[in-house]
Structures are given as C-alpha cells and as structure tokens.
C-alpha cells in the first residue's frame, strides 16, 4: 500500500470513528439526562365516526 493510500485509509478510519464516537456520546448524554427517543404519533386523521360542528355555525 502506498503511503498516500495508507494515509487516506487512516483519515477515513479516524473520521468514521470520530462520527461514531460523537453518536455514542450523544446517546450517552441523552440517557444521562433521562431523554428517550420519542415515538411520533402514527397518524393524524380526523375521527371517523364523530359529528363536527361547522365553523360558521359556531361563530354565528
């Protein structure tokens, strides 16, 4: 392996490791602060069997 190739590989490895370490650090910090990933609601839909009041009617 050329010196240039070796250095390129080393740079990629360090970069990857750095990013992974940042991710792990972030996860650990969230865990320490008691944060947890929040599940987003699965859908947002109007209710299916409800009866709404009209906007104009409510204002009127």
């Amino acid at each position: 392996m050329s010196r240039r190739g070796f250095l390129k590989g080393l740079a990629c490895l360090w970069g990857g490791l750095g990013a992974a370490a940042a991710g792990v650090w972030g996860g650990l910090r969230d865990a320490a602060l008691g944060r947890r990933p929040v599940e987003p609601p699965r859908r947002l839909e109007p209710p299916q069997h409800s009866v709404k009041r009209g906007w104009e009617e409510d204002r009127g």
């Binding site: 740079a11 970069g15 990013a19």
Partner: peptide
Amino acid sequence: EFLGVLGASAGLAA
C-alpha cells in the same frame, strides 16, 4: 488533503 478526507468521511458517517 488529509484533513479534507478526514472531514468528508466524518461527514459521510454522520
């Protein structure tokens, strides 16, 4: 170049 590759790989990984 070294720093460029380092940054690019970190960015890609992140």
